[in-house]
């Protein structure tokens, strides 16, 4: 075993290496700004960003905003998971529906849906609901398509095993099709939840309403760059939370590998 392979086996070394590189990168940026290679009026110094945290937390109520954005993200994630997977199952189940809609579901998946926000404002008002629905809309198509793909890719022989054991249609779905499609469904969920998050923060920013997106908008307009970046750190925290939840869900549903 080479030294590198031995280190990779250690529990702490990879994590420490990742964190170390991150810290080193921050230190390098700090240094480049201090010596004037990077313009400090465009990129704030990391030390200033860190210093901005208490101010952002106390004066800008970042925790409440964080909870609001996180709540929107969570609601949109739950909605999009339920409707996206159910939609994929419907497309699988009804061949005509699939033929009729698959092409434009794929087109929707690729479209910049964020541009629909004026319409949503009209329908849902300038409220958290608009933001949740935007996130939901953005994440729906990829989850539907990946669910459909996973179900269609279920190996014929596994379906035949179910038939040979006389499974009812509902057993056939829950005991064979769904677990077989799960790995692909989770690929769709990763994509869909990323789309949803981007759109949630983006729309908050655009309509200047609610949580972290609005804060970023305000701080940027005040030209408080350090504060803006500190707020962005909280957006990253939201996405980390969503992904941790999703991984929990995945480990619960798929104990394998």
């Amino acid at each position: 075993m080479t030294a590198a392979a031995a280190l990779a086996k250690n529990r702490y070394v990879p994590a420490a290496l990742g964190l170390g590189s991150f810290v080193a990168f921050i230190a390098l940026v700090e240094l480049l700004i201090r010596v004037g290679v990077i313009n400090r009026f465009i990129v704030p110094m990391p030390s200033d960003i860190i210093a901005a945290f208490p101010r952002v937390i106390v004066e800008e109520h970042v925790l409440q905003r964080f909870l609001l954005t996180a709540g929107e993200a969570l609601s949109a994630s739950i909605l999009v998971t339920i409707f996206g997977v159910a939609g994929g199952v419907l497309l699988y189940r009804y061949h005509l529906l699939r033929l009729a809609t698959e092409t434009w579901v794929a087109a929707v998946a690729a479209a910049p849906l964020v541009l629909m926000y004026p319409l949503y404002l009209v329908i849902f008002g300038r409220s958290a609901l608009t933001i949740v629905m935007m996130g939901f809309t953005a994440g729906l198509a990829p989850i539907m398509l990946k669910t459909l793909e996973g179900l269609l890719a279920t190996r014929r022989v596994l379906i035949n095993v179910g038939r040979s054991f006389n499974l009812t249609p509902s057993q056939q779905f829950w005991k064979i099709l769904f677990p077989a499609a799960l790995p692909t469904i989770f690929v769709g969920l990763r994509l869909g939840l990323i789309f949803a998050l981007i759109n949630i923060v983006g729309v908050e920013f655009l309509i200047n309403f609610g949580g972290l997106g609005q804060l970023i908008n305000e701080l940027a307009e005040r030209y408080d760059l350090a504060g803006t970046y500190a707020a962005i750190c909280f957006v990253i925290l939201v996405s980390i939370c969503v992904f941790i939840l999703m991984e929990r869900l995945e480990r619960w549903l798929r104990p394998v590998d």
């Binding site: 190996r155 022989v157 095993v161 677990p179 077989a180 798929r254």
Partner: peptide
């Protein structure tokens, strides 16, 4: 069956 037919998730 002829093909591999175990359930990989079980």
């Amino acid at each position: 069956f002829q093909e591999e037919s175990t359930f990989p998730w079980r």
